[in-house]
Write a protein that binds this DNA or RNA. Structure first.
Lengths: 126, 126
DNA sequence: CCCATTTTGACAACGATTCTCAGCAAAGCG
DNA sequence: CGCTTTGCTGAGAATCGTTGTCAAAATGGG
């Protein structure tokens, strides 16, 4: 994969925020900067980053994909449903539990998704 | 809410299978039966059932909503990624863990999603 | 029965995502 | 450097799940 101007711009944009954003949001963000990137390219690049494990994608309640740069180790997210503030969390016990449950029922090649939603302290006060 | 012919048909259709199906699938299923139901009505009814907690909805990797009748207690799903065979599972420890994690970070009104994907015994052999 | 209110469904509209394809940029090569 | 080959880009079209529209039909109360 070639390190093009556009791909660099997307990667940099991803480091400029800390919550989950939609592809459209990221496209807008780039449009205001010095390196506009076409929407199709934003989608292509984000998908590649997700494949590469450098970015996490999850889906909102209404099915929209949202993206966030992430650490490369396996983790889950604690997300504020008001402001989007996100904390990465790990839960070895949960990992073990899912594997055990799956094995008990004869399922192999186990994967799982787990997200926690809540209202963060700052938003509760507001 | 009125118990119409269409709503009854959708509810019955939901009892006729055991895996997660898309609204389109359910619409097709009804179309082959004696009570065709318009696609818009299928969507409306499914959403109402989800609201009422009688049906579970989750999203496929590509964002499509899929539906399944479910027990009314809180639970999660172990889903075969080949054939869709689904088992409801409970994990009190996980419930506790998510609440603890959220509390530690000052998040309130906690909810969570958790799905486990794997290949079931039957599909592994095939 | 009759009316007020819901519900339905064909179709249009919508929005996120992907596809198309011609033009452009990068890497390799002599 | 020129040239070539190959991959990348982007504007717009196309796709597809889902929701909105609205006139016609069904429902239940009076």
């Amino acid at each position: 994969m070639r390190p093009t101007r556009q791909r660099t711009a997307v990667v940099e944009a991803m480091t400029s925020f800390d919550d989950f954003r939609s592809a459209q949001d990221i496209h807008d963000l780039l449009g205001r900067g010095t390196t506009p990137v076409g929407l199709a390219t934003v989608y292509r690049t984000l998908n590649a980053l997700v494949e590469a494990g450098e970015v996490d994608m999850l889906r909102t309640e209404d099915g929209e994909a949202i993206y966030r740069r992430c650490s490369e180790t396996h983790h889950h997210h604690l997300v504020c449903r008001e402001c989007g503030a996100t904390i990465e969390v790990e839960g070895p016990a949960v990992e073990r539990w899912t594997r055990t449950i799956a094995a008990e029922h004869g399922y192999s090649d186990v994967a799982h998704t787990l997200e926690i939603f809540g209202t963060c302290a700052a938003c509760r006060r507001a």
